[in-house]
Design a protein around this nucleic acid. Structure first.
Lengths: 279, 279
DNA sequence: CTGAAAGCGCTAACAG
DNA sequence: CTGTTAGCGCTTTCAG
């Protein structure tokens, strides 16, 4: 019998139970929404007894090394915010532990809590058009991203329905660093400037605004800028944005992992993307 | 002999080695700099074979529960970004694993990679005074924070040296949410408005700016706003800020933990706080 | 130099 | 119902 100040060893428990109650949170790089998302994800995880390990994967090799933590039983499950390797490669790790993401990916063994950007994006264009914006610019993420493809489909369909509108200003980016500034330079250089531009991320939109203002332009008078996250930055910059429910996505992405790992079932949250006015 | 597809079990290794190579990153709540800091901290940790567990402690009880992970050998060490319990209470856990923080705390068993805010703050006030700002406002963090006390000492000493200056506008806050807006309301209501205001965080300064603009004020014409982190937000909002070297702090805070846990020694980085102009 | 064994600290199963 | 034991998978030690 030990003395009364006995402290159980968690690692021994983990070995025995073959569970660490730890989930990996993988993102290629840091951008502001990572923090917000992680905040939501970690809190719901903590409520159900899980802790969250953060990994900034940076390289394809590193991402694989991190996924291999599932095979060594260091992690019970994995959430992927931004990936590097192909979904095929990633999904091959699902047999070692459940994997979820917020990206739109169609694999039987990866839970995807995606939002269909098509209807909301079409709705936003309609809204802008009704407010007199015939020339609408689009700053989009990479086309390898299914959300981006949904957006370009919406653009094409909208263009077909409203031939008098102009959707020619389209930019595609793979990262978020320096992007807003680059887009602003392109806008300043454009001969036929769109009167409104929709962005794939609040942060990029914010950088766009600040670069425009630095160049003596007025926002929203010269250009209405629309963000895409409903994050704090959107409020700060006083821009309209699109709520794509990342908080619910974080919630549901965890719920899936939990349900896969445990016998009891937690229930999913509904999500409802919507336009958010500048405050 | 097993087949060739043998995968070692990390948890068994951890049990044997009595090491998890995992560091806890504790913060009371989320605010934008948390993400930036975590990014720096996690990357340097990963370079040296450590992963980082994030905890949003929220309550005093929760924070203790998290610190107890040191006693159960779930965590090797702990970094504290924002605390809840007293440093006395926290330091009593140092015998179970090294603890570091970026706060200014004078405990033999807690490494504090603090920046002395006194000289840089005095310098900033001087700079503003030389540029014609006789009435300078101060939005500060809690007085239980040693950095805040260094700032108030700088204010008092400056006031003594320049009796014609006005430093009466002083606000103290415990959190970062809604703070900038509240400070802006106070500024708008003030009869004797300071022509420049220095903030304890970029994010709070940004919120202040956006609230002022919403109320028809011009920044920086009506009020020069100075931030305090040199974070992305400062660039976005085009405000001058103070670089307090949080990236170096993240680096050094990790180095300490590493050196305590290992026999080899990594070396610390120098830090040099400085004024950063609006770009 | 190679191979077996002990033990890290826990929990589940089993015996008393 | 209580107490002992086997084994989770690794590493270190010790014997061959």
């Amino acid at each position: 019998m030990h003395e009364m100040n006995y402290i159980p060893n968690q690692v021994a428990k983990n070995l025995r139970k073959k569970r660490t109650n730890t989930i990996g949170f993988l993102t290629k790089e840091y951008f502001p929404l990572v923090g917000d998302f992680l905040n939501s994800f970690t809190k719901i995880a903590a409520e159900h007894g899980y802790s969250v390990n953060v990994y900034f994967t940076q390289t394809a090799d590193n991402e694989l090394k991190t996924l291999r933590l599932l095979t060594t039983h260091a992690l019970d499950a994995v959430f992927i915010l931004t990936r590097i390797n192909s979904w095929d490669t990633i999904s091959s790790y699902a047999k070692f532990g459940p994997i979820s993401t917020w990206h739109r990916v169609n694999r039987p063994n990866i839970y995807s809590n995606f939002i269909d950007h098509y209807p909301i994006y079409y709705h936003v264009m309609n809204h802008l058009y009704d407010n007199g914006h015939k020339n609408i610019g689009h700053v989009l993420s990479s086309l390898r991203n299914a959300n981006t493809r949904a957006r370009t489909r919406a653009i094409d369909d909208f263009k077909a329905s409203y031939p008098d509108s102009n959707q020619d200003f389209q930019l595609f980016y793979h990262t978020q660093t320096g992007t807003g500034e680059d887009a602003a330079q392109k806008w300043l250089a454009a001969k036929n400037k769109p009167s409104a531009v929709i962005f794939y991320a609040d942060f990029v939109a914010a950088e766009f605004i600040s670069t425009l203002r630095k160049n003596g332009k007025k926002v929203p008078d010269d250009c209405l800028v629309v963000g895409s996250d409903n994050s704090e930055i959107a409020h700060m910059m006083n821009m309209p944005t699109i709520d794509l429910c990342f908080r619910n996505q974080a919630h549901n992405a965890f719920i899936y992992l939990y349900n896969e790992l445990n016998s009891d079932r937690l229930s999913y949250e509904n999500q409802n993307p919507h336009w958010v006015d500048a405050n």
